[in-house]
């Protein structure tokens, strides 16, 4: 088991003829993901890396039985691409595109929620269930199949943590970047719930950062509803207030959203909070009752 993506994932790549879309379509296919179609309006009938390209998501879905989409479409057309995927009835839409206006995301969020569609991102590195499917842009070789679920608001920081888990012989069930923007489709709580229900996942690593109160709400949820151990790390203890730290969502405003506040909330909920990414594997082992190295 794993969450959201696995060997049954049949993937459409929206924006497959673009630079990033074509590059990552090939990498995902190479990893073993069933990449069944690409979509670029006006490029239907062509192919990229032997993946057939369609003009529209509905056409691609009908021809291939796809159930998941990953979006590399440039920001000016990204919102439209998400609506198209949602309206085609895909179960999961993963948005890699960065910088979609918040007003557009607000509309997309409620539109998708009304139709029961799930999306991950935007500004997400995607997700991977090691050994089964990769729907994202992460370097595949740092992952190993196993029992740790990883959920994060970041990209490269997640790779850093995953790599340290793998080196400590802690494989992963699913690693998922929920995205660094203020309005995202799938949050920490959604993922924690799925990891709790997933038979393969034995422990969860949660990687948060400054801004908003998602980590605080996740802490409440963990206390109330999680039986599996959770280990966390929060980036941005040294971030100055009022400044956007790269991610649009990473900003401390009016004293709220600080790393210390999040660390305290997690600690109070019984969640281990690591001071450094490299401390995480030992904490996970301890929580699982595994011997230290």
């Amino acid at each position: 088991m794993s969450i959201l993506v696995d060997e049954n994932t049949k993937l459409i790549v929206q924006g497959i003829t673009g630079r990033d879309g074509s590059f990552h379509a090939a990498r995902m296919k190479e990893y073993g993901t069933k990449v069944v179609a690409g979509v670029t309006p006006g490029k239907g009938g062509s192919s990229v890396d032997d993946i057939p390209v369609f003009d529209a998501v509905a056409e691609a879905t009908e021809a291939t039985g796809a159930n998941t989409s990953i979006i590399f479409v440039p920001v000016a057309f990204a919102a439209d691409a998400v609506y198209e995927a949602v309206d085609a009835g895909l179960a999961l839409v993963v948005i890699i595109t960065e910088g979609i206006p918040v007003a557009d995301m607000n509309k997309i969020y409620h539109h998708a929620a009304e139709r029961g569609a799930r999306f991950v991102g935007p500004n997400s590195p995607g997700l991977i269930s090691p050994g089964k499917a990769k729907v994202g842009i992460m370097p595949a070789r740092i992952h190993e199949p196993g029992g740790v679920g990883v959920v994060s608001r970041s990209g490269t920081l997640t790779y850093e943590v995953v790599y340290s888990l793998t080196r400590a012989d802690l494989g992963q069930s699913t690693c998922l970047g929920i995205g660094g923007d203020p309005v995202i489709g799938t949050g920490f709580i959604d993922c924690l719930g799925m990891f709790e229900a997933d038979a393969e996942t034995r422990a969860v690593v949660l990687i948060g950062e400054i801004g908003g109160d998602d980590e605080e709400r996740a802490a409440e949820y963990i206390k109330a509803a999680m039986s599996k151990p959770v280990v966390s790390f929060i980036a941005g203890r040294t971030a100055p207030p009022g400044k956007r730290m790269g991610h649009a969502g990473a900003i401390i405003s009016g004293g709220a959203g600080t790393a210390e506040g999040k660390r305290e909330a997690l600690t109070a909920a019984g969640v281990g909070v690591a001071d450094t990414p490299s401390a995480i594997p030992a904490m996970v082992k301890e929580a699982l009752g595994l011997p230290a190295d």
Partner: peptide, 29 residues
């Protein structure tokens, strides 16, 4: 580039916002 000036002694160049924040945090730690 995403850049925010501060007043410390260790300048950082990092790829990725989360890793960049973490690098700053470790410098302080």
């Amino acid at each position: 580039l995403s850049y925010v000036p501060m007043t410390g002694n260790v300048a950082c160049i990092v790829n990725g916002a989360g890793l960049a924040m973490t690098t700053m945090d470790l410098v302080k730690l």
